[in-house]
Design a protein around this nucleic acid. Sequence first.
DNA 1: CAACAATATCTTGCGTAACAAGGTATATGG
DNA 2: CCATATACCTTGTTACGCAAGATATTGTTG
Lengths: 127, 127
Amino acid sequence: MVTMSPKPSQTDEGRSIARELRRGSLELIVLHLLSSGEAYGYEIVTKLSERTNGALEVTDGTLYPVLYRLENAGFVTIRWETPQRGVPRKYYRLTDAGRAELERMTREWTAFADAMTRLIRQRPEAI
Amino acid sequence: MVTMSPKPSQTDEGRSIARELRRGSLELIVLHLLSSGEAYGYEIVTKLSERTNGALEVTDGTLYPVLYRLENAGFVTIRWETPQRGVPRKYYRLTDAGRAELERMTREWTAFADAMTRLIRQRPEAI
DNA sequence: CAACAATATCTTGCGTAACAAGGTATATGG
DNA sequence: CCATATACCTTGTTACGCAAGATATTGTTG
């Protein structure tokens, strides 16, 4: 478990839905973050939160299984690196298949989001 | 199980993600469809698909549990109606709490979708 | 009329994935 | 030397979508 600074549980209201929304989006998120170059797991956790101003967050206990799935699916390759100072890091890099999957998932997510947006923007008319 | 016409399994590719994307969205979808007036379960299944040109679909085996959750949470009330001809129907209607929840979920979904859109639109820059 | 399809409801069991909460190990600062 | 930060991993719980079944009534067609 990552022990962060005494974080005041920031987004604690309206909680349970956000969890479900991550389903089906997390792999896309990770693949996208890796599209600009390799990164290691702990880095992804922190950078995702920074990049989205806390709007999208994930714990390391959630991320590592995601990375395993991506690796087993052949979408990323791994490389260990032990810096002169610090704990060894496991770097992930997109494969060609991963890049193709990223495009596929992006299209799928966009289609879903567009359909949702069109639906919930409809003004009440008889069902 | 609802036995439809020999439907050719339309959207059969890219399958597993769409399932997960419905998580956290289905209740919002149903609440929205009920915002224009009451409807019965079977009607929601067919109308959702029509309204979105098949982009959003749900089976009845999925919908009924959703409706129970909404009822137990006090977001909808039910009313049975037996038409002169036809099978009895269970009509669902939004409560005030349901309407408030619809607004809350809409805000939450929009915030999530906006964050996702901003993220996946970013051009590759160093992570 | 028998047989089947369509309408409409409900239930059970399975698989999957997010997460909390635990663990290990190395380096750094007081 | 002890707490904190960095970095990895694992287990168990929980929730939900869905396939696949069941049931009952009505309409249709050979």
